[in-house]
Computed example of a mutant assay.
Amino acid sequence: MTESPPVCQNPSRFTDPLTNEFGSLNDLVPDLASLQDLATRGSWRTIIDNVSRARSQSLLTQPHHHLTYLAYNTLALMKLRRFDEAQQELDSLEDFNSSGYQYETYPHIYPNRTGSMVPFSLRWLYAVLPIKLSNRQVGLDRFYELLDFVREKLARKLAEKLEESVKSWKKREIFVLNCLIGYHLSSKEYNVCFDLMNESIGRGNGLDPILVSKLGFIQMQVGDLEGAKKSFNRVEEMLNEGKFEDGLLSEVEFRNLVSRNKALIYLVGKDYVSAVREYEECIERDYNDIVAINNKALCLMYLRDLSDSIKVLENALERVPTVALNETLVVNLCSMYELAYVNHSDIKRTLSSWIGRVAPDDFDSSCTRI
């Protein structure tokens, strides 16, 4: 019952945003807005069909069109666990540093535009796919290379004093760091996690609330409760100092991060009532905070209030299915059914039937354990 480390929670959101120098999204890439909408809804099979149709009808007329569609197609294949096919897509590419992927190679198509046209999401997919294919070390090596690439870009944007670009690349740095820390944490490589955290803080990321919260989470994993409290208190101090104004987190997101951190400390002390109170405050601020919803239900279960814990999860699924419908929450709900009801198999079958109608294409329905 802990807050999961953010290991690429919603990769579809990390498709590299193209600049709006060219006008609308569809001026940049045909039907890009439609692909983004399909990704948001988890319609991965439809994305694959659309990409195939665009390719067969020769709708992709410019170099960056092909890269953007390939990124969506690879992501969709990965989400559907068709990892070998996703790898085949990536194998069709040249080296990312190839001149064929530079805007200046095509001055007649991209006048006055320079740099790489490779979407950031494609670089991320290149790193994550080996891990999905059980080549963990290859994937980790690529993630470290991606981190170096991001930091190089960030340093350049800082030197050029491009504030918006700095924010964008800073978010990517934190994202890649969280991916790396998450993978090392899943293998209980705590020392590596601490080294990454300390090195990042030394680079000036000590004021990032997500990173400092992650430090506190890892400290809890190794039993350093006092260290975790200090880290979480530092995050709360940042909130009180108005650090959310830098745009990395909204004020609501920041306040919920602080509340969830407090709840974790209460959980360690088995003070489930206080933890529930913190999670309820999160939900009041943002009813889409699925971590707070899930953990509130688990706290109620530990308080032997199975009826209310089931209601919390069922209400979330009914109110915000696109957010709440994830395997962890459904596994927890099914476990509660098994504890609460003799006829839990029938109830789980009803749930599974509903999931079949509303779930995104990549949802693993086996989590209902029918």
Rank of each mutant, 00 (worst) to 15 (best):
A76G: 09
V150L: 00
M117T: 02
L154F: 05
S121E: 06
L77P: 01
R123D: 00
R136F: 15
L60E: 01
K157C: 09
H108N: 09
K79E: 11
G100H: 15
L93Y: 08
F175H: 11
K170C: 00
T105G: 13
P107C: 07
E104V: 07
L140D: 00
R81S: 12
N178P: 07
R123E: 13
Y72V: 02
R113T: 09
L59E: 12
K153N: 12
S58Q: 14
K161T: 06
D148N: 06
Q87I: 03
L177T: 11
R113F: 11
P130I: 10
P63A: 08
M117H: 10
P130M: 03
L75K: 00
E173C: 15
E85S: 08
K171H: 10
E104L: 02
Q102P: 05
D141K: 10
E160T: 05
Y72A: 03
I109L: 06
A127F: 01
R136G: 12
R136L: 08
K132D: 10
R82H: 09
A76E: 00
N97L: 14
D95N: 07
L75N: 02
L75T: 06
Q88N: 15
F120E: 05
H66Q: 11
T68R: 14
Q87H: 09
R81H: 10
H108R: 08
Y72S: 03
R151V: 00
D84S: 10
V128W: 00
Y144W: 13
Q87C: 06
E152Y: 08
L125Y: 03
D91E: 15
W124C: 03
L67Q: 05
M78D: 12
F175D: 04
R136Q: 08
G100E: 06
T68W: 15
S121Q: 14
L162H: 05
